[in-house]
């Protein structure tokens, strides 16, 4: 299945072909084709255990796929280590929020900026911009330890955005956020897409998906069972049966 070619003019930011990952003999990701387009938010939905997080791990390099290829822009990154992909402009957040407990909010974001050549005054300026965008400016000097989960998710998102990513993979960002924070995150992600970032949104909150995403993939037991524009996918009979 997968996305249809859009005429060859639009460059894909991230392209996966026949991606397969087996765990204990079971293909938890099974021949997945996936394209992320610059400036678009693509949603990845599916029931628990569908393989969404494993697919994300394969794309970001946390896990090695057992088969298939991954292209980041024009570059093949199937076997490239995680940090290498990150430096090529692929950022991600984790389902279990990943922040650095011993650092402050600003330092967390700075770590993200510094790996992309933005250190010194440039790095500080980048961090200040990201913190303003996320509404975290007042917490900049606050240690991360002890902050509520909702704020931690924003900090993690800030670290991912600080590198100015071309591709942003966001895993269950709405978990633990209240309605205001979800609206804020939605705005930030839309803004990132507006600046040309290709966003992949793994999300349970279908309202957020419907509001934000341009396209969607539906994953079930490791396979893409539906793909298309968000309206098409939400109207799909097979998708309705899954919920």
């Amino acid at each position: 299945m997968g996305a249809q070619p859009t005429g060859g003019l639009v460059v894909t930011a991230l392209r996966a072909r026949s991606l397969t990952r087996r765990l204990g003999g079971v293909a938890v990701v099974n021949g997945v084709d996936l394209d992320l387009t610059p400036g678009q938010v693509t949603a990845l939905v599916g029931p628990n255990g569908a393989g969404k997080s494993v697919l994300l791990d394969c794309l970001s390099g946390v896990a090695r796929p057992d088969g298939g290829r991954i292209l980041l822009g024009a570059r093949e990154v199937t076997r490239a280590p995680c940090h290498w992909r990150a430096r090529l402009g692929l950022a991600r957040t984790f389902q279990q929020v990943a922040v650095f407990q011993g650092l402050t909010v600003a330092q967390n974001v700075l770590v993200g900026a510094e790996q992309h050549g933005a250190s010194g005054p440039l790095g500080r300026a980048r961090v200040a911009g990201v913190l303003r965008l996320l509404g975290l400016a007042e917490l900049a000097a606050h240690p991360v330890a002890g902050l509520p989960l909702g704020v931690l998710r924003l900090v993690e998102l800030g670290r991912a955005l600080a590198g100015g990513p071309r591709v942003l993979l966001v895993d269950e960002v709405s978990v633990g956020l209240d309605a205001t924070q979800v609206a804020w995150v939605a705005q930030v992600l839309a803004m990132a897409a507006g600046e040309g970032t290709a966003v992949l949104l793994v999300e349970h909150d279908l309202a957020l998906v419907a509001r934000l995403a341009d396209r969607a993939y539906v994953l079930d037991t490791g396979r893409v069972v539906a793909a298309g524009t968000i309206a098409e996918v939400l109207a799909d009979e097979r998708v309705r049966r899954l919920w």
């Binding site: 940090h83 430096r87 950022a91 984790f94 650095f100 770590v111 991912a160």
Partner: peptide, 13 residues
Amino acid sequence: ATRDHEAGAWAAG
């Protein structure tokens, strides 16, 4: 960063 969250540090580059 690596000490506190190794996978997160990898992902940050």
